[in-house]
C-alpha cells in the first residue's frame, strides 16, 4: 500500500509572495488573520504555537478536501514554550499564589493536537511526539505505520515549533543556536492518505531515524537508498553559507548535483524537517525532471534522519 502526500498547510517565516520575515534577529512566521479559524474566546486563550499549528492543520485538511481525518499526529521539539515560560515566571514571582490556570492548561505538549481535535470534534487517534529533531520524523513514521497497517486512511500529520524571547536567549547561551544560525520557527502540516488526490505529486517511500550513530553509517544507509531509488535531489538541513560537515560528507558521498538548502528560509528549529518535507513536495511539483528526493537531517552529530519521497 502506498502512502501519498495529498496536501500541505504551512505557516512559515516566508512565503512565495514575501521576502523572509526577520524580526529581532529571528526568522518569524508570517501569520494569517486567525478570525476565520477560531472563535474570539478561543483566540484569546491560546498561544501563538497553537494558533500556527492548528491553522496550518486546517489549511492542510482544506487543501486535501478531507473534513475529518482518521488520525491527528503532531511533532514538536519544545512544545508550548510561551505558556510554559509564562506559568513558570508567575509561579516564581507570585511565590506560588494566585496563579491563572490557563497558561498551565495550554503548556502541555499535546495542546496543539488536542486543539485541532477540539476544532474538528475529532475522536480519532491523536498523538504528540516531542523528541528534538526526531519530533516530526516520529509523527511521520506513526502516520506511515497507521496507513500501512490499515488503521487509518487519511492522517493529518505535522511539525511545529515556536521561538520566544526566553528560548532565543537561552538557546543562544547554551549553543543550541550557533553564532552562524538564524533562529526560526514554523508549522508545516500534511494530509497523508492511502489514495492519491488529484493534486498529489509525491508519495512517502521511506523514513528512518537513528540515534548514537556515526555519519559513516548514515552515508551507507543513504547509498543503499540511492541505489534502490536513483535519488536525483537531496535536501539538507543547513544554511547555504554555513554547510554542516555531515551535510558536506553526505553530499560528497552521494555525488548528487541537485542539492537544496533551506535553513536560510525557515531558520533553525527542532521540527524544521517538516519545512523540508514541504519543500520536497514543492520540488517534485515544480520540477518534473526530479523523481526521487532524499531529506537528511541531523542533531549533535549523533541523531540522524533520512526521509525519501518519490514522484507519483
Amino acid at each position: 500500500m502506498a502512502v501519498y502526500i495529498n496536501s500541505i498547510g504551512q505557516i512559515a517565516p516566508n512565503s512565495l509572495a514575501n521576502e523572509e520575515q526577520i524580526i529581532a534577529g529571528k526568522l518569524t512566521c508570517i501569520e494569517p488573520d486567525y478570525s476565520a479559524f477560531f472563535d474570539s474566546r478561543t483566540l484569546r486563550r491560546i498561544s501563538r504555537i497553537i494558533k500556527i499549528g492548528t491553522t496550518s492543520a486546517m489549511m492542510a485538511l482544506k487543501n486535501a478536501t478531507v473534513e475529518m481525518p482518521d488520525a491527528i499526529i503532531v511533532g514538536t521539539g519544545f512544545g508550548c514554550q510561551e505558556d510554559t515560560s509564562l506559568f513558570l515566571r508567575k509561579l516564581i514571582t507570585n511565590k506560588e499564589e494566585t496563579l491563572n490556570p490557563t497558561p498551565f492548561i495550554f503548556s502541555t505538549h499535546n495542546s496543539i493536537a488536542s486543539q485541532i481535535a477540539l476544532q474538528l470534534k475529532c475522536h480519532a487517534y491523536n498523538s504528540t511526539y516531542s523528541h528534538r529533531n526526531f519530533s516530526f520524523e516520529s509523527a511521520l513514521l506513526d502516520a506511515y505505520l497507521l496507513i500501512k497497517d490499515d488503521d487509518a486512511q487519511h492522517v493529518l500529520v505535522g511539525g511545529v515549533d515556536e521561538i520566544i524571547d526566553d528560548s532565543f536567549d537561552l538557546f543562544t547561551r547554551i549553543g543550541y543556536l550557533k553564532p552562524t544560525d538564524i533562529a526560526g520557527e514554523g508549522a508545516s502540516f500534511f494530509v497523508l492518505s492511502d489514495v492519491k488526490s488529484k493534486d498529489c505529486v509525491a508519495e512517502l517511500k521511506s523514513i528512518e531515524f537513528v540515534a548514537n550513530t556515526e555519519i559513516a553509517t548514515i552515508i551507507d544507509k543513504a547509498k543503499t537508498l540511492y541505489h534502490e531509488y536513483s535519488i536525483d535531489a537531496i535536501i539538507v538541513g543547513s544554511h547555504p553559507d554555513h554547510v554542516h560537515q555531515n551535510d558536506q560528507d553526505l553530499i560528497a558521498a552521494l555525488k548528487i548535483e541537485n542539492t537544496i538548502f533551506y535553513k536560510q528560509l525557515c531558520g533553525e528549529y527542532a521540527t524544521s524537517s517538516a519545512y523540508a518535507f514541504a519543500t520536497a513536495n514543492t520540488l517534485l511539483k515544480e520540477n518534473k525532471a526530479v523523481k526521487n528526493v532524499l531529506i537528511y537531517n541531523q542533531y549533535a552529530n549523533s541523531n540522524h534522519s533520512l526521509i525519501l519521497l518519490s514522484a507519483c
Binding site: T108, H109, N110, S130, E208, F209, A211, N212
Partner: peptide, 16 residues
Amino acid sequence: AKEIGIKGMVTTISTA
C-alpha cells in the same frame, strides 16, 4: 538510550 547502548530508533511521546 546512549547509556544503555541503543544505536537505533529513539523517540519520546508527550500526550499528557
